[in-house]
């Protein structure tokens, strides 16, 4: 008697569970389809497009395949310069941003000074307004300072876009370093500078690497401000994209997009390996 009721109760609870799992399965399926259509689809199209000759309408695949567009990109002097410019500005931006922002991040994390919260919040200001509006006013200032079409001008624009990452993320990382780990190093005989170099910095490094990767990508993808301040003297890969889309066959833009994605993907893979496989996991187990 008791067993029958038990099994009936079990079957009763199983039925809504099946319905639940159907709904869940459908949602997962829908999510996968959306991912494929909107993320993988364009990438796939891009990959095919870069090697396509003619591609007439109803055909699912191109009529013929070619490496011509890659040749065009490699041989085009302006495009090569754009690649060089991008690879010049992105690391330089990360470096300058780190030099300016990391000490600030440390100060935000470790010292309580008047206006600390105000400064911390106001860092968001550069990201709170429409970027184009900021760049137009910046351009007016740059004309006055003779910074238009200059390396310094572009650098300023790029660094501005990275300040938030380079301050907030490392500040959180510095703040997460337990005080008594630093005290233990002092006790062992280390000077304040040595404590920072041997304990604080290595422990905050995963956070700093994340910030550096994000800054690199932000600089690498920055187009609006660079175009406004740098064009036509300094064309980077994203700004060159604008003229490519307008002036070349779409295949060239496809080739260029793939090239533009390579550093980002490479950087993400390296960062992923180092951050998830390395210290971050172990380093933060300490109480």
């Amino acid at each position: 008697m008791a067993i029958t009721t038990g099994s009936r109760a079990a079957s009763r609870t199983r039925r809504p569970l099946t319905l639940d799992s159907i709904v869940r399965g459908a949602l997962v399926g829908l999510f996968v389809v959306l991912m494929v259509v909107f993320i993988l689809g364009p990438l796939l199209w891009l990959g095919v497009r870069a090697f396509a000759g003619n591609w007439t309408f109803p055909n699912l695949l191109p009529d013929d395949w070619t490496l011509r567009w890659w040749q065009v990109v490699v041989n085009d002097g302006a495009l090569g310069v754009a690649v060089q410019n991008s690879l010049f500005f992105a690391p330089l931006t990360v470096l300058v941003s780190a030099i300016i922002c990391l000490p600030a991040a440390y100060a935000f994390a470790r010292f309580d000074f008047p206006g600390r919260r105000f400064f911390l919040i106001s860092l968001f200001a550069t990201n709170a307004f429409p970027k184009m509006g900021l760049f137009v006013t910046l351009a007016a200032l740059f004309y006055a300072l003779n910074l238009m079409n200059s390396v310094l001008g572009i650098l300023v624009v790029h660094v501005l876009g990275t300040v938030v990452f380079m301050t907030w993320i490392p500040a959180a990382a510095f703040a997460a370093v337990p005080r008594n780990l630093e005290e233990a190093a002092r006790d062992a005989g280390a000077s304040k500078l040595r404590v920072f170099a041997s304990v604080t910095l290595p422990m905050a490094l995963p956070g700093i690497i994340v910030a550096a990767v994000m800054s690199f990508l932000a600089s690498f993808d920055e187009a609006q401000g660079t175009y406004l301040v740098g064009a036509p003297a300094f064309m980077t890969m994203p700004t060159q994209m604008y003229s490519l889309v307008l002036n070349y066959p779409t295949q060239v833009a496809a080739v260029f997009s793939i090239l533009l994605a390579i550093p980002s993907v490479a950087l993400m893979l390296v960062a992923h390996k180092h951050i998830l496989g390395g210290q971050l996991a172990e380093g933060f187990q300490i109480k």
């Binding site: 337990p178 008594n180 780990l181 005290e183 233990a184 190093a185 002092r186 006790d187 062992a188 005989g189 280390a190 000077s191 041997s198 304990v199 290595p202 422990m203 210290q279 172990e282 380093g283 933060f284 187990q285 300490i286 109480k287």
Partner: peptide
Amino acid sequence: LGAENRPSAMVFQNYALWPH
């Protein structure tokens, strides 16, 4: 003297070992 110049050594409550 600062902690780094004192002839004493301390064992901390939560050990304060450097995890890296």
